[in-house]
């Protein structure tokens, strides 16, 4: 049954259907509707909705609820996500599953509330302290936003690695028809023998990211990085559109990925063989498929709502096999398809 929904609301509904039962938040535009939706709907599903005194408090409440073995989530936007970085590093270190939604806005600093993609590094390179990674998924439609939130809960539980949804203000605010996925039955949610539930008939459980002994801590981190390697092998997701005969492929994600799909259609009408490579998992980044593409496509044009962040991962993956120009917009400016098409025409000629 298709429903017309705002991106923020679809992500909230996706979380509820994934079995999220504790949601902690703090007000910030442009993810306000996600908060409001949770306030109205989560309690009706027997869930806990709590508006915290700060994003710092909210992420630490997530830490507590996750430690207690409940599916839990928080959402915010860029400046708020910066405040959560310490807590996210602790979640990663303590192997606690949790979902963090970032509805990105233009920065740095207070910036504005227009859509942007300037938090890519923060999300994918470990924005907090220490050697950790987050599973980072980037939706480009309202439908995908709902689905990726559910996937985030599943992956986060399976690997005990926090997962982040990297959306932006446009995707959060736009409305589109959505076919909502079926709710996950509670028995499908994996058990958590490690959680703090009261040491009855078992030795005490300790949720911690702390170890003074470097050799022991190294073993803990080696196990963590083994998990990251496994995720890199198994959980890469991307979409290719019209790349089979492409002479230039646009590399873009999220809202930018969506706009570039239109650019591909317009270019094709003008006889330009243009395609799109859209990463869906930003970590693990789809380096392998991008590298294969670079072996036959002469130009990979990265397009971002930033000064170029994913662009670095594109160049790392391509390693000179193809030209990797860049086109970015700053300040919350979202380029139109024609503006991107003009950029494309600098690199290919009909």
């Amino acid at each position: 049954m298709r429903v017309l929904m705002r991106g923020n609301e679809a992500m909230a509904e996706g979380a509820i259907r994934a079995g999220c039962r504790c949601y902690f938040c703090y007000p910030i535009t442009p993810q306000g509707e996600l908060v409001e939706y949770m306030a109205r709907h989560l309690p009706r599903h027997g869930g806990v909705f709590l508006q915290a005194e700060s994003e710092v408090a909210a992420i630490n409440m997530v830490y507590g609820a996750a430690a207690a073995g409940v599916r839990t989530m928080t959402s915010s936007s860029s400046p708020g996500i910066s405040l959560k970085m310490e807590g996210i590093s602790y979640l990663a270190g303590a192997r606690l599953p949790a979902v963090i939604v970032n509805v990105m806005r233009a920065g740095p600093g207070l910036g504005n509330i227009a859509p942007a993609q300037g938090d890519y590094f923060q999300a994918t390179k470990g924005g907090g302290h220490g050697d950790y990674r987050l599973i980072v998924l980037a939706p480009s439609t309202v439908q995908e936003a709902a689905e990726l939130v559910m996937l985030a809960f599943d992956l986060s539980d399976r690997y005990r690695v926090p997962a982040m949804i990297l959306a932006d203000g446009m995707l959060g605010q736009m409305m589109e028809p959505v076919e909502l996925p079926e709710p996950i039955p509670p028995e499908k949610i994996p058990p958590r023998p490690w959680a703090v539930s009261g040491a009855k008939g078992r030795p005490p459980n300790v949720i911690s990211s702390f170890d003074l002994d470097p050799y022991r801590f190294r073993e803990i981190l080696r196990a963590l990085w083994d998990t990251y390697r496994e995720i890199e092998e198994k959980e890469v997701r991307w979409e290719e559109y019209a790349t089979e005969d492409a002479e230039l492929v646009l590399v873009a994600y999220g809202t930018m990925g969506r706009i570039c799909r239109t650019v591909v259609r317009r270019a094709r009408k003008e006889g330009l063989r243009v395609g799109l490579f859209r990463p869906i998992s930003l970590w693990p980044f789809p380096s392998e498929p991008l590298r294969k593409l670079a072996e036959r496509v002469p130009v990979l044009l990265t397009v971002e709502l930033s000064a170029g962040q994913m662009w670095e991962d594109v160049r790392l993956a391509v390693e000179g096999r193809a030209k990797t120009p860049f086109y970015g917009e700053l300040g919350g400016v979202v380029p139109t398809p024609d503006e991107v098409l003009r950029e494309v025409k600098k690199h290919v000629h009909s």
Binding site: R21, C22, F24, V48, L50, A52, V56, A57, A58, N60, M61, V62, Y63, G64, A65, A66, A67, A68, G69, V70, T72, V196
Partner: peptide, 9 residues
């Protein structure tokens, strides 16, 4: 805050 998260959960 952590205690709040646990108690609420």
């Amino acid at each position: 805050a952590v205690a709040t998260g646990i108690k609420r959960a």
